[in-house]
Design a protein around this nucleic acid. Structure first.
Lengths: 245, 245
DNA sequence: CGATATCTTGAGGAATCTCAATACTAGTGG
DNA sequence: CCACTAGTATTGAGATTCCTCAAGATATCG
């Protein structure tokens, strides 16, 4: 079996190596949504599927930002590091999410696969040529970037002003909502990332994340299932917890 | 004297009410940078200067996002609130910065003037018409949005992983850099916002902000001057403090 | 010059972190 | 199929940073 077989993908997507854009599982979510067939064909010409192992780096903070990616299946994370090793995860990426747009020389953050992941890769220079001729494409990326900005600002509220319990509740609600938006089950929520990843995305330690999960479990709001799944007992209660302890 | 006279603007800009775009003080920084004279004329046609008092709201979280703004002179802040009143400032805006682009119905955050401020306002619908005909304009806003995203992600690292001292140091370095970029003095740094604003932008309390300033002052890294100015004694030392205590 | 808001300083408390030990889980090879 | 191993998660106890509450100092504005 090839070592880059992502067949155990628990999100349920199939092997995508040979799938043309027209039947791509993230066709309606990704950068390529809202393109005309002819436009899609031209975009496909410059795209390239790429497999990434769990834990493997997609690009580093200081790598030149010469490609843009779209997650096809799997999960990735973006993070920034401090010199002493402290880490802040600035976002998780799921099927359909795009990655790596930059108008600066380097990406400014590292991107790494959380589970075996397939990416659709677009060389930045060729993409910019297409921008000229396909306003819809540029418009689409503009919209997605603005959405990312709104998401980042929401996360600033979480990081700066919420308690550990509110952070975890917010995190679960967000994952649930995002799963629903891409057509997956929103409950139980699948958490492909480790406790350390969750901690580094919420400005906590793994221990505090673990304790808080236990707390919520004891409180009957959630229950931890096998296979990294969290069953949300009462979604409204959890959403309330996310805004006020 | 009219109540909305922003003449004491300590950033040194003059009254801009009657200034045409061509001689606008933020001409080279703002949305309108990189436009051809003819394009600029058309943009000017849909723009409108607007004065905002210190403490006055520009728009609320739930207000429909039907305008985009460019700060001409002054300073503004953007913030999000939790139901119990906790506040996170998600960014400060200075001369040249743009504000309020959204592809959603509402802005999702409140914008408020910190000092008397002048804004250049563009109705969103008319702006989108111009996008069609002036790709450069859309491109410019796209770039600015991507820059904002990079800034927000940098701030996530600050909020999630830095200590109080590192946060304050980062804040001062950032303000200094931004002042330099718009052609102002980068040292001493002018802090038009209150301690409470600084606290809410860094995920701290006013008391901790105050204590940390005192600490840095005692350590000889900075000194507090009159008129809300902070003299940075050793910029490199401060930059080091921003990354590791 | 007085009133009011803002800022600073102090003392004690609480949430979260650090360090350490134990339990679990998944993958590996017998 | 079961033990073994290595990584990951949980739990515990004590330390620490930052917060809360409170008082005093300073600045700002009419």
């Amino acid at each position: 079996m090839p070592s880059h077989e992502p067949g155990h993908d628990p999100e349920g997507a199939n092997d995508v190596r040979a799938i043309p854009c027209g039947s791509c599982p993230v066709r309606t979510l990704a950068v390529c949504a809202a393109l005309e067939p002819e436009e899609l064909r031209r975009l496909a010409e410059i795209s390239q599927l790429q497999s990434v192992e769990a834990g493997q780096t997609i690009f580093g903070e200081d790598d030149p930002a010469d490609s843009l990616y779209n997650v096809t299946t799997g999960t990735a994370k973006m993070y920034k590091l401090l010199p002493d090793g402290r880490r802040q995860i600035i976002g998780f990426l799921f099927a359909g999410d795009f990655l790596g747009l930059a108008f600066s020389e380097t990406h400014g953050f590292t991107a790494e696969a959380v589970v075996p992941t397939w990416l659709c890769r677009f060389p930045r220079r060729r993409l910019e040529v297409l921008f000229e001729e396909m306003p819809r494409l540029q418009r689409r990326l503009f919209t997605l970037t603005a959405n990312e900005l709104a998401l980042a600002r929401e996360q600033m509220l979480v990081l700066g002003r919420k308690t550990a319990r509110e952070k975890i509740a917010s995190f679960l609600v967000m994952l649930s909502n995002r799963a629903a938006r891409r057509g997956h089950r929103d409950n139980p929520v699948f958490l492909p990332m480790s406790r350390a990843d969750i901690a580094d995305s919420l400005g906590l330690t793994t221990e505090t994340v673990s304790r808080t999960f236990t707390q919520l479990k004891t409180g009957g709001v959630i229950s931890l299932q096998e296979g990294s799944r969290v069953l949300i007992g009462d979604m409204n209660a959890l959403a309330d917890l996310a805004e006020a302890s």
